[in-house]
Write a protein that binds this DNA or RNA. Sequence first.
DNA 1: CGTAAATGTTAGGGTCGGCTAAATTGATCC
DNA 2: GGATCAATTTAGCCGACCCTAACATTTACG
Lengths: 199, 199
Amino acid sequence: MRTGDIAQRLGVTPASVSGMLKHLSREGLVNYREYGGALLTADGERAALGVVRRHRVLERFLTDVLQFGWEQVDALAHQMEHALPEVVVDAIERLLGDPATCPHGHPIPDKEGRVAAEPRLTIGGLAAGDRACVREVDEFDPALLDFLQQRGLVPGAVLRVSQVNPIDGTVVVEVVDAGATALAPATAKAVRVSREVAE
Amino acid sequence: MRTGDIAQRLGVTPASVSGMLKHLSREGLVNYREYGGALLTADGERAALGVVRRHRVLERFLTDVLQFGWEQVDALAHQMEHALPEVVVDAIERLLGDPATCPHGHPIPDKEGRVAAEPRLTIGGLAAGDRACVREVDEFDPALLDFLQQRGLVPGAVLRVSQVNPIDGTVVVEVVDAGATALAPATAKAVRVSREVAE
DNA sequence: CGTAAATGTTAGGGTCGGCTAAATTGATCC
DNA sequence: GGATCAATTTAGCCGACCCTAACATTTACG
Ligand SMILES: [Mn+2]
Ligand SMILES: [Mn+2]
Ligand SMILES: [Mn+2]
Ligand SMILES: [Mn+2]
């Protein structure tokens, strides 16, 4: 991870990131050398997965119990994730029956920091005629999520690629029970799939 | 409200309270004169009732949905109440069916800042032979709450005062379906009641 | 009353994250 | 191999809140 990337993702200046990285480095959460980028240590990885768990459990809670739309819950969970007592997150997780994934399909780490692997194949990586099952979607753009839901491109959906345009990379997918949709490469990259059809 | 009282309740030095009162005064939330104490303005009252609403809704959620004991939820709600997005509190409130009170019996303000009146009569204010109905209990001491629950002194319970000791003020109450309990005046003051029996 | 004690405020400082601007480093391209 | 440029770090600052210590006011009581 480079300083500038972190700064951009956090909406903060690179100067602030430098300071914080030095801080985290002193606490042993990050390996960091000046001008050399940063990497989480084992401890840092554990701490980060703890936050990821809280975030994804909360997303599930917000959709399943409080009926929020999946396009809103990333931002809401983000506001809540640092203030909730651990016991409350645990209780919510139990209430939900220890869900395996967040509403966008990303796996929820367990309390020991174990996480299921995530598929790396995207719709953009499929060829014409391929069949696949939607596993996860990128969750940072509410408008994209709204669109994907309308077209049935949600985790668990089964699809077939009917065309791949060799010039610009546009793909057309037919989603079972939801019709056909054309996707530009950038959009096709936001949906990760597996080749096997869901159990 | 005096500076020192606020400081004590917040676990902060009086110096910090002076600074903050000056700040809140500038924002129009509080009427404050040096050495003269502070009082909420109408705006301040509104803001405060908003926080009270969040707090009490969360307490209800923690007991009713997440199954926490009523002796734990004040502290937990306190940690959560400032970080939860308003829409989430609203959704929780709807989920619970717009409850009228927190688990300790205190009324939940509505979104416009209207609150039901709270009874001022306590068990300590009853005479031998009086009948009453428990309405609310003080919620700051988990050990006290544990005790009250064991003895059936929870909102809605019906009781009769069987003795009042004229020397030290000890009262003995008989709780319907839960036996007799002796209470020192300080404890008796923690339970507020109404003379009418609950509907 | 008048003074001592209690209460409250001010002064001065610290930490935590953030910022801007200036300096530094490393990468790139003649 | 050096000049240039982008990325990064450092320096210095700020605002929110908290603190302690010193000072001011109010209160309570002999
Ligand atoms: Mn998310
Ligand atoms: Mn998610
Ligand atoms: Mn409470
Ligand atoms: Mn309560």
